[in-house]
Design a protein around this nucleic acid. Structure first.
Lengths: 306, 306
DNA sequence: GGTCTTTCATACCCCCAGGGTATCGATGGC
DNA sequence: GCCATCGATACCCTGGGGGTATGAAAGACC
């Protein structure tokens, strides 16, 4: 009944992920025999067999799968405790905001302005990361609050919706498909996506079409798009802010809308986080109202075009 | 940057709770000097001072408070991993249902019937506990699913509402207040509550009036109520199922309704949990529909009384 | 103000748990 | 049937976590 140690959990997760004691030991920077022994001791302690092992194969048991899931979240919680404590004890505490560049729908500057006006505000610090890394940053205590796109893994996090906007496909203006005004995902199945982009909002990763080219920022992505080597899914706000002569944006009928959320750890108590969330919700509400008004004006004067 | 160990977190929590190295060491079953050293090492590792200490007083710093909160949740996650893994590896896996006796609104038998009909059902096992212990049991991996009353601490848990019902006060029929038909919390301020009951649904614990008598089950509580020594807040379903000649139930104007929820760990993937939640929601919906129908019938024939 | 008590920190020692090396043994491939 | 691969076992050794003895500072009490 002695409780588990972080070291044991780390070892277990390594073996469970590698399904190979030798490789797991290498990853952990240790020799294989002590790792085998550590796992055996762990199994004895829990009174449970975690792996079915032969000399040729290592397989997780059902109990092993349960432990893998729970061990990961426990390890997250431990590293988060360390990171958050260091941050809280730092001489210049900051509000660390995790987001992916260019996905803030153009809201971030206004949100930061509104946030600064709050007396509880700490100096903000942007933590940029790839798609889907924001939630992990929150869980690991590397960020205090995040802007994330749906779909996301919200375990342990709270969130408020900010914006919902349609997603367009960006393709070379010379692409034959650009001649059509409406497309479906099926039409695009043969096109490559830039690496690091969400495969397709919502559904389980469809087989990444072809070898995907890697690109980490919008300008790189757009140069790939312009050459016709890839297509790219861009929320309407991104499309609006990046008009390019050689890039055509087209609606895709069956692509779910992009939903931008503000998220934070469920047990966050920091007033700075609360201030940021309030600011983000207020600015997003204002933006929605403004867009609604514009849509109405558009309806009144259907001749006007942008 | 070496990561924290469970032992360090346990030590820290003990000191943070006792605010006294000697007592904390005693609680941990160890001597005081190694504990002091462990805390000092922890502070060095994090680069943060966690306690302001003089020889006469130990006080948590801000960073210490952050770590206290996060360390508790991390420790919960670790013990939950152990408990859930043991349970998953057991030869006779069960669905452990946490609840407080008598707060199921009379739904439990039907829920269990419906649950049994599900092919994913595991044999159920009831885990009884006091008020507010259900959420903790879920977080510690001692239960898989729970029936809880609002208000509750839902950090890390998901839930679905089942029932909302008014709360009545149960008092001795001879109590002078029993002569009135409507009461407010202020009227009851001078009455004692049985120990272990929720102080007052919703608000922060009001000063427990008088020395509260301890009682762990409904019959004990009712005998105390009948003698006039205490009053007791009972959801309507409990009152309906426990008519007693010497106990009067009266509505209280400013007492929030009791809300019964079914809750489970956010990352639960067990089909048995899903089956139980489905069963609970279905039965609760049926109950709500039935009560609505009864209310309508009542409205049609206002002369009928129960 | 001196002394005593309380309580956290320091100094020093010791033991074993966790890690390394060498080797065995089983299993599947050729 | 031999070999290569990979997990398990046996044994040793070192570092860190824990114990005891003691110091030092800060209230309490006369």
């Amino acid at each position: 009944m002695k409780d588990l140690e972080v070291r044991q959990l780390r070892y277990f997760v390594a073996v469970a992920e590698e399904l190979h004691f030798g490789r797991a030991a290498a990853r952990l920077g240790m020799a294989q025999p002590p790792l085998s022994r550590a796992i055996r001791d762990l199994e004895r302690e829990l009174g449970v067999t975690l792996f079915e092992r032969t000399t040729r194969q290592v397989r997780l048991t059902g109990a092993g799968e349960v432990l893998l899931r729970d061990a990961r979240t426990a390890l997250e919680a431990v590293t988060a405790a360390a990171h958050r404590t260091r941050q809280a004890g730092s001489t210049s505490p900051r509000l660390r905001i995790a987001l992916k560049a260019d996905i803030d729908g153009g809201l971030l500057p206004q949100i930061l302005d509104a946030y600064h006006a709050d007396p509880a505000a700490l100096p903000p610090e942007l933590v940029l990361g790839g798609f889907g890394e924001q939630a992990q940053a929150l869980r690991d205590g590397l960020a205090d609050v995040a802007l994330v796109l749906c779909p996301w893994d919200g375990r342990g996090l709270d969130s408020e919706p900010l914006l919902t906007e349609p997603v367009l496909v960006a393709m070379a203006a010379t692409d034959p498909l650009a001649a059509r005004t409406h497309l479906s995902l099926a039409d695009l199945a043969a096109r490559s996506l830039p690496d690091g982009a969400p495969a397709a909002h919502g559904q389980s990763t469809p087989p990444r079409p072809r070898a995907t080219r890697s690109a980490s920022n919008l300008s790189e992505i757009f140069s790939l798009v312009e050459t016709g080597s890839v297509v790219f899914f861009a929320p309407a706000s991104v499309a609006r802010r990046n008009p390019r002569p050689d890039v055509a944006y087209r609606p895709v009928s069956d692509l779910p809308h992009a939903r931008l959320l503000v998220a934070w750890p469920q047990d966050a108590r920091s007033p700075a986080v609360a201030a940021f969330v309030r600011a983000a919700c207020a600015i997003a509400a204002a933006r929605r109202a403004q867009e609604e008004a514009e849509a109405e004006a558009e309806a009144d004067m259907p001749s006007s075009t942008t």
